[in-house]
Nucleic acid binder design. Structure first.
Lengths: 223, 223, 223, 223
DNA sequence: CATGAATGAGGGTTCATTCAT
DNA sequence: AATGAATGAACCCTCATTCAT
């Protein structure tokens, strides 16, 4: 029964139907198109990128593109989705929710968050390039989505701050949503910085300065 | 501004030469084109705006446009220049360079800077709309210019911080350029916030929170 | 379905060779493709119908289509052939050639012809829809074929007229080919009418009016 | 004042404003586009004709086309309008409404109507070519318009018949709308005939046969 | 033999830019 | 100097057809 004849894919058990092979190949190509589109969009921008550019770079006919995505607008949506997903996944893995119960632990948490961000975004500066430089201004809807992303992040940060207030190592009167917005502002500034001059060392310096500013402010010896 | 012509043209008494009249009219129209282009670009974005849109809105032929600006790329440059100039002028008027010698004075100065920004930008949310949403991603060069603007602002902020350090009301070991970047991040976050939901009250809340965070950090009772 | 195993499946008596089975299946599918193509073409028109539309409606892959027909042009040809054949078959069955020997019999014959036409064409208004609305203008050759159809019909009609002349109940000086053309014009007008508003009653009224006009003309009491 | 200087078109009186010149030129080009589109559509059909074909044949850039017509659909509409108008104008000039009061006069009127039709349509067989061969099947709406044209004609014919009934030279029980439809069928058959083989002589023969059939029917000596 | 993924010619449409008036 | 008619490069998208599986 287990005749390992030619091919070997038509054997017993849950046979990978030929359609499954094809299905997988399609998923692969879809993935490749998204990736290549991501490359093009983040490098040249949405408007400067033609469907043909994506197709040529992938070595496929441009008609093929339209078998996988409805139109040009469709692909940028999927690219953004993909990038967003990747970023959030990467972040979510790393930072456990409320491990910090003291200020020191909190500082350490911030360290880790910063590191994660750096790893995710600076590993590939094309991510912020796409999200912050090229994705805005294509479309009202898309712009809204990017800002929505930032809003979500703010909420997450605010959650961390709330936790800190509850634990008593952050000011009890802290306006957490607003402070979250300010914090995110600093984070984004750092991301943009790293995007423009991708130097891990500089990033570390920035992270450190932000962390200290955030925790202690800039005044001399408090009191 | 760059009239290198012979003889002054705004000379009292002696007849305003016809050419001067014409020159003035041209300058006016040029100004109007820039303003209208600003309107269009900030509302619909660069790519969605056609030269015809600008011309129609102004009531001129679109051929005329090209007598004043070399091409579409040229006008966005001038619009950005114009906006930048307006912002800096407005800010420069208000905030005297180094009037703060104590932390309280410094806080007051920050107040005033914040107010100025609000007045300038939130008065017309189309300014950040243009600079942050629509101007990026048109062009590498233009993107660079927008970032250059932020860089310049950072330098200015860093100057303030240096002054504070010298005056002794800011931490002597403050990494001023880096802290400036973080500060600008918070400012930009506020601007974006105001651009999206233009509510002066919310803005004031944000300004206050940022100021306090900046001065004191977020920790409980320092030490 | 395509088990080409040994042994005939439904072979009574002399074995239907497997190839015959296949041959028959092919013929069936071919038939179905033509029918479905007819549906699509007559409903949406030639250009608005894609090969994919036909294939999807039939539940076959669109590649399969090309195993039965050379190209899109090919199928419309066969559809027209098929329709033409069906119409002529239906008509031929009913109307025996030269049964009319008196004017009354002739009138009765015209009745029957009219009824047949109605049955064939109005039963399915998609037939004239295809032939008269969609088939013309695709192609010079195809247009010619449709007109050829009409020409053939003219010849048939002329035959009937000749018979009437020979029998003496039609004017001896009747220009039969030309009159046939006029008669066909009236018939086609009726078909188009029925195609647009398929009401058997109206059709009957039209048939009657045409018959009387044809036989007697429109003048008052001849002479 | 009357300096007959160069040109001579800027003289006194209602000066043809330069804009008027241009306006006229635009109208001309618009006309030429319609004519050329008519040529292309009637020769090759709607689908086989590209905007580029029209433009090239006219010696203009294809972008220019879009300054005069919104899209491809728009031009066929205007072409049909134009053709329709031309036909109706030509017919309306010739055939005065109700000049016929006797059967003989009526016959003469039919003669003239026939001649007019011949002149209009056979002068340019491309007119029926466009209307009957190429215009149907492009679009439901356009097909409806063509049929509407025929309907209108039917109404006109019915009017003539009603007049004849009132005058007493046509059967009092004549179903005029229905007979009009039949009559139009014969006319269209003739037009199609002339379109396919444009021979005035044949046309005359057909006209004559139709007239006689129409007036007297085909039976022998009406008692 | 059936399938449908891949292909690319082809066509409609837009719009920045030029230039004759 | 102003105008806007003309232009054509460029781009998005469709769909008939091919061919490897």
């Amino acid at each position: 029964m287990t005749h390992h004849s030619a091919g070997g894919d038509s054997n017993i058990g849950p046979v990978t139907k030929p359609s499954a092979r094809v299905e997988q190949r399609k998923a692969e190509l879809r993935r490749e198109i998204i990736d290549t589109a991501f490359d093009c969009f983040s490098e040249k921008g949405y408007h400067a990128t033609g469907i043909a550019d994506i197709a040529v770079r992938l070595g496929i006919g441009h008609g093929t593109f339209y078998r996988y995505f409805a139109n040009k607008r469709d692909i940028i949506d999927h690219v953004i989705d993909d990038v967003t997903g990747r970023v959030f996944t990467a972040l979510a893995t790393d930072l456990s929710p409320e491990t910090a119960t003291t200020l020191d632990e909190y500082t350490a948490l911030l360290d880790r968050i910063g590191d994660s961000l750096n790893r995710v975004l600076l590993d590939d500066p094309r991510v912020p390039q796409l999200l912050l430089v090229h994705a805005t201004g294509i479309d009202d809807e898309l712009t809204a989505r990017v800002f929505g992303l930032l809003d979500s992040t703010e909420v997450v940060i605010a959650g961390y701050l709330d936790h800190g207030v509850r634990c008593g190592y952050l000011r009890p009167d802290l306006d957490t949503p607003t402070t979250a917005k300010a914090a995110l502002g600093m984070v984004v500034a750092g991301i943009v910085h790293g995007m423009r001059t991708p130097d891990p060392a500089l990033l570390a310096v920035y992270s450190h300065a932000v962390r200290r500013l955030f925790i202690e402010g800039v005044r001399v010896a408090a009191r």
